[in-house]
Nucleic acid binder design. Structure first.
Lengths: 116, 116
DNA sequence: CTGTATCCACTGTGATACTG
DNA sequence: CAGTATCACAGTGGATACAG
């Protein structure tokens, strides 16, 4: 996730666009992240609710991706001190702003898929 | 690049957005692709011209990424039967349409970087 | 319920050398 | 000039079992 890659082009103004872009893409890069973002768009979900949404995901991967997204400020994690424990995940403001952009990219993708 | 991943969620309408999106993201996924896209925005370039733009790229990687992008319909490759051989790469229409979208994503990325 | 720990396979990237 | 071939390695994703 933290690559030396940035050193390749961080010193030159001309590369700034690609640099921001790379920064953005790194945050949504991962097999499950976009699907998680998509699910949480409709409201906060618990760990096991998410797990059920993606029947093929392993616990390990769900945890890893959630941690990563939390670290990147895309989702918020709330623990309720109940018994048994309840944990809810929701989108942050920043992740919500991503919605429209991803929709456009999605449309671009659909357009290409239809041609192919 | 060709993942079984799609089988995970191709059967359900609700996943279509993420599916198109994944499709799109796969096409621009790779360490150098965005930078290549960025360079070619300003006009067609030859193999060695591209190589010089990214001083750290290996010939192997440049070739691999170019081939992949060509296969994905993002760039076009033209060979001129001269001596020595001349090969030029340029953006396809589809890749050009990607520009504005990537700019938005880029702005989102910049916004986040400034906060962090 | 919400995770961690361990082990393993695959993939992307890179270094280096070589070619028509 | 414009690539290929070969080897190597780290990161990522996955299967399975275990834990607070």
């Amino acid at each position: 996730m933290t690559r030396k890659q940035n050193s390749t082009y961080s010193s030159n103004e001309k590369y700034l666009v690609a640099c921001d872009l790379t920064y953005a893409l790194q945050k949504i890069h991962g097999r499950w992240k976009l699907q998680i973002l998509d699910k949480l768009k409709d409201g906060r979900l618990r760990y096991n609710e998410l797990r059920r949404e993606f029947s093929h995901i392993t616990e390990r991967m769900l945890t890893l991706q959630l941690r990563s997204m939390e670290h990147d400020g895309l989702i918020s994690r709330t623990v309720y001190a109940e018994v048994p424990v309840r944990v809810e995940y929701g989108l942050t403001e920043i992740a919500t702003e991503l919605g429209p952009i991803l929709n456009q990219l999605s449309l671009w993708g659909r357009k290409q898929r239809q041609k192919a």
